[in-house]
Computed example of a mutant assay.
Amino acid sequence: MLDPPGVLPQAAWRLDASPRIGPDEVRLRVERLNLDAASFRQLAGQHGGDGDAVRADVLAIIADRGKMQNPVTGSGGMLIGVVEEAGPASPLGLRPGDRVATLVSLTLTPLVVTDGLAGWDGLSEQVPARGHAILCGRAPAATLPADLPPELALAVFDVCGAPALTDRVTRGHAAARAATAAARAGGGEPSGGPVTVAVFGGAGKSGSLALVAARRAGARTAAVVVSAAERDALVRAGLADRVAIADARDPVAVSAAVTDALGGPATVTVVCVDVPGCEHGAVLSTADGGTVIFFSMATSFAAAALGAEGLAADVTMLIGNGYVPGHAGFALELVRETPALRALLAQRVAGH
């Protein structure tokens, strides 16, 4: 039963997380939660980095709502679990004993925690946990790969929509340029040079995956990071053509950094920064006719829309919804074929 009745699970305040499943549902034995970056940052900030207080808050949210949905950010995360029971009409193809990562948000996943999160210090996004969760028939999950540590696989699955959509949008711009060139008398090279992609938060999980996806799609790339340590890590990994330090919340400074790095505004700007206030900088950093992809749960639709209007910016703005067909396999492929990416992600997971 949902509260209020008549809404879909993500919009509900409270979900029925009882263990009994319907014909098309699957029950998982929970092993680990992965809180999304914006939610964890907000909780840690609210409690001044007090891990015990963060843990207590997460437990209270789950107990109150029957799911993990931060009431401030509205976001949740995802989880690893083992299939306990699959309904006879489930379309997910899962069997008891399968170890899986969910590919849908915890904000719409009925969840019960039974161990008080005793194995978690409240200081990291990844949360050892015991309990159960319920997947409906439209809530996909991926079997954990045997060649990656589960913590790393969970981190990749958590953001796998970002590289897949970056790839799609980058290739779309490249195809449009090629078609325009072919339509001209005598053909010739696409005008304007290669597609360029700027990634705000390029040293993070979603940002580093987006950089590799954009380069793989033929783009020239620039990463925007907030510190010299992040810049140095990306330079060592060689995941971007250029790396700039700028505060993504400062529209003038970040747009100048992108222009300097790429020789002009970006064709595509991807926002992977988990703090509010990056909307105007992203719009200002993007060329007319370009695309801004917002992958941060801290994004304000009003700020993005009204900011673009106020800047008279002819840009398409997309909200990355976390799902693109084949996104999990695509992200794993990027990690497997790019050792430096795998090492960077593993380092971030270990740091948490």
Rank of each mutant, 00 (worst) to 15 (best):
A146D: 14
R216V: 02
G93A: 08
R65Y: 03
D16C: 07
L8I: 04
I245N: 10
G204I: 13
E189P: 05
A303F: 02
G97M: 05
A343V: 00
T221E: 03
A312L: 09
A210I: 04
L262Q: 07
W120F: 08
T73C: 09
I293R: 02
V254K: 03
A313S: 15
L262N: 11
V225A: 13
G131C: 07
D247H: 13
V254R: 03
A174T: 05
A313G: 13
F40S: 08
D36Y: 07
K67F: 01
V258K: 04
A217K: 02
Q42W: 14
A179H: 12
L152E: 06
V169S: 12
F200S: 02
A237I: 03
G74M: 13
G187S: 15
P110C: 05
T102R: 03
A312H: 10
G6W: 05
R236F: 01
L165M: 15
N321V: 11
T170R: 09
W120D: 05
P128T: 10
D167K: 11
P251Y: 14
G76W: 06
A240L: 07
G320T: 00
A37Q: 15
G74W: 15
D314A: 15
P91E: 00
T73V: 11
G76A: 06
R249V: 04
R216A: 14
E333R: 15
G116P: 05
R55M: 13
Q69H: 06
G277T: 03
S18Q: 09
K67G: 01
G204C: 14
L92H: 04
V252W: 09
D241Y: 06
W13C: 00
L239Y: 03
P19C: 07
G238K: 04
P194I: 05
Q126R: 03
G119N: 08
D241V: 05
T180K: 09
P190A: 05
L311A: 15
A240D: 09
L148Q: 13
L111W: 00
M297L: 08
P88M: 00
I245S: 09
S255E: 13
S105P: 06
T196S: 14
G45H: 08
A248P: 06
C136P: 00
A11D: 04
A133L: 11
D64N: 02
R184I: 00
G76C: 04
L154E: 10
L111Q: 00
L311T: 12
A304G: 11
G326S: 04
A142M: 08
A178E: 12
L318S: 13
G97D: 11
A256C: 03
R95T: 15
P88L: 00
I61S: 01
V271G: 00
R99Y: 06
V212H: 07
P150V: 11
A139S: 13
A185K: 02
L209T: 08
D241M: 07
G116K: 09
G201V: 06
P150N: 06
L332G: 05
S227E: 10
L8M: 11
L332V: 01
G281I: 12
A228R: 15
D247A: 14
H47Q: 07
L35F: 14
P88R: 03
V169Y: 11
R220V: 14
A185N: 01
F294C: 13
C136Y: 04
A233L: 15
G161A: 12
L43M: 14
